[in-house]
Design a protein around this nucleic acid. Structure first.
Lengths: 216, 216
DNA sequence: CCAAAAGTGTTTGTACTACACCCATGT
DNA sequence: ACATGGGTGTAGTACAAACACTTTTGG
């Protein structure tokens, strides 16, 4: 026998993805021009609606795949947004997710049927609904991650130089970091291993490549 | 003109509250015996369903008020749970909230129409659905809060002794803390003020009472 | 006067900060 | 040989951890 909560309200649940990218210049955020009403034509986070038979994470992954073709991406649930009039079209609640993409060894491409664009994190437009709040929160979380679990920052190519890693940190934390102190700190953290390989593209001497250590 | 997302799925959204209390003996969690099917009679978090015209936070506050009569309680949104079959009765997603109650100068009482009971945090029963996961998460968050914003731990009476505060920390962090180091740390944090008053109930000498500083 | 709990300081190690020079090599 | 970016060490300071004795007073 199956019981049902017959008299309870039902409503639409959405997911919105804050997609961060890093390209050695700075931290970027991926936005799309909204294709449906209301607020059609305005910049927005990439989002979608939760289906009856999928989890929130699956839904966010589906959205991400639609936009970039990518699967198996680090996706983290942030927070649910539920102001009654957050979406003027209809009562919806939305759960925010954040994803991190490596823009350098880019194994994906933006789906062309969407008008999508990367914006620098410190110069992106006003977004629809409560999306700007969501980005704020995601940035806070990203800064926290950088301090506590930098190995989760899947924004770099598999092999990267100390300079790349430091530039990433500087972009996320929006600050300058001392080269020597940064190297010692990363080393004492025991999260990377130095390879024998060097990257020769940026100098005559070449700079060592590193990899994040895998942990079980 | 108003637009609607007509073809999207709608579903039931629930809130579940992880309610922590502290009574100088240890950290407790408030559970209720479930009164509706399915899983009727099993221990569960206090929960409810989101109504069309209320925010998630309002919904969680309503649940808390129903159970304890209390309003204006520190409530924090944790995470949304959305496994498709998490509730065998019907597809629902649930957003977890955590609340902190002071069991000592208890200004509230448990609503008698519910069979509700405080359990020690390290000895409570298996709960329905994914509620045990929710408690795990809430505990993690509580530990984090203790480290970073102890003044948010509204688990103590307004005036408390260092011993009470330390016992609370020990309960939350599940560890022993050195008396001297703890006092110095709390003092350098600048989050409490020592009153001229002493609590004489526990010793002949009496121990100073403290209050959390208000911050704007 | 003594039992019971409260209060208090010092030392040691570890982590963070600031700071400047030498190294390797392609041209 | 030199210009370019890469790599490295030290000294000072601040914070965390370990550790034990003295104070107060009701009984």
């Amino acid at each position: 026998m199956i019981y049902k909560y017959d008299s309870e309200d039902k409503l639409i649940v959405a997911v919105d993805c804050i997609i961060f990218g890093f390209d050695n210049e700075g931290l970027k955020i991926l936005l799309v021009k909204r294709a449906i009403k209301p607020e059609i034509g305005k910049w927005s986070l990439m989002g979608g609606f939760l289906k009856k038979d999928e989890t929130l994470t699956a839904s966010a992954k589906r959205v991400l795949k639609t936009l970039t073709g990518l699967e198996n991406i680090y996706l983290e649930q942030l927070e649910a947004y539920s102001e009654v009039n957050r979406d003027p079209a209809e009562r919806t609640i939305s759960v925010a997710f954040s994803a991190l993409l490596n823009m350098v060894e880019q194994k994906w491409e933006l789906e062309k049927s969407f008008e999508a664009k990367w914006f620098p994190i410190n110069a992106f437009p006003v977004l629809i609904f409560d999306h700007n709040m969501m980005v704020e929160r995601a940035l806070k979380r990203l800064r926290y991650k950088a301090q506590t679990q930098p190995q989760e920052l899947k924004l770099l190519p598999k092999k990267f130089t100390m300079l790349q890693l430091r530039t990433l940190f500087e972009a996320i934390l929006d600050t300058k970091l001392d080269k020597r102190n940064f190297t010692t700190k990363i080393n004492t953290m025991n999260i990377v291993k130095r390879l024998d390989e060097k990257d020769m593209s940026s100098s005559k001497k070449g700079s060592y490549l590193y990899e994040f250590l895998e942990y079980d």
